[in-house]
Nucleic acid binder design. Structure first.
Ligand SMILES: [Mn+2]
Ligand SMILES: [Mn+2]
Ligand SMILES: [Zn+2]
Ligand SMILES: [Zn+2]
Lengths: 144, 144
DNA sequence: TGCTAATTCGCACGACTTGCAGATCACGGG
DNA sequence: CCCGTGATCTGCAAGTCGTGCGAATTAGCA
């Protein structure tokens, strides 16, 4: 996702207005590495602008996603997560606490895939499952 | 997922009863390559056993998943899909029609991953995006 | 055959997201 | 700087997907 200033320009170019609510969300999202849900963003935004509505958060997230400024991620846990990091990357999620981190994968092209049968693959998205460092130590102390 | 007969035994061993509804679902799921949703299974099951409830379908799917007989898949499209193929495999999904197919990937261990930072990866799940053969010819005729 | 715990089913409810409409606001033009 | 107009905001209703609940039914066992 681009900077708040660049996004403001991009919105106006599309005939979209740059409202205080949108500017706030631009700032909250920019460089955000937490892969937040709409609810989480709403909570953060509400502290800075009491009264902002959840509906507006969804609206703006959808606009940003449509402009390719956000990646939309779907995991097991109920709700959608939004990722301002649109650089080609993948994710590692902790089985225990759900923590989600970015990982960068090289040599994807060396994978040998059977079963495409004419399927034209354009992109791959990898989710690694395992335990984050914090949950590893917990598991060490309290083995299940 | 094992055969209906084996599942019946496994259910009884766990103190779960083998009802006609469950037996039907065992049969509908066994060898099913469509990655069906609960609704899709309900539709198929309803033809063979009018009156079966969607609630029972969900119940049985959850039981099977808890026993490791089904994989639970979450994609962008709204609802959960269930996969009786529990052999280690991955998926390719058509961007246009949503068709989902199994693919088998080798040399996963040769991937170079940056960003784990102590994350203990135990498993990876890859989703390839692209166009299925049918949708490729449509795109050829009607380029967007 | 009879007991009992498990299951089924329908409905209500919960989580998440979108549709809707009136009040409000951003912003280009005068 | 002010206006007009269309985009936006907000609260609420509604939609979708899945689960909790409880009365009636049933599988499995003695
Ligand atoms: Mn990310
Ligand atoms: Mn599969
Ligand atoms: Zn963790
Ligand atoms: Zn297709």
């Amino acid at each position: 996702m681009r900077s708040p200033a660049e996004l403001s320009t991009a919105f106006r170019e599309r005939g979209l207005k740059v409202t205080p609510q949108r500017q706030l969300l631009f700032r909250v999202l920019h460089g955000n590495m937490t892969h937040p849900t709409a609810e989480a963003l709403f909570a953060t935004a509400s502290e800075l602008m009491p009264g902002i509505s959840l509906r507006t958060v969804y609206q703006t997230l959808n606009d940003l996603a449509a402009m390719g400024e956000l990646q939309v991620l779907h995991f097991a846990s109920g709700s959608t997560r939004f990722d301002p990091n649109v650089v080609d990357h993948h994710h590692a999620q902790c089985d225990r606490c759900g923590d989600l981190r970015d990982v960068y994968v090289q040599r994807l092209d060396e994978l040998q895939v059977h079963g495409f049968d004419g399927f034209a693959s354009r992109r791959a998205s990898i989710v690694f499952g395992g335990l984050c460092p914090a949950c590893q130590s917990i598991s060490d102390n309290n083995p299940t």
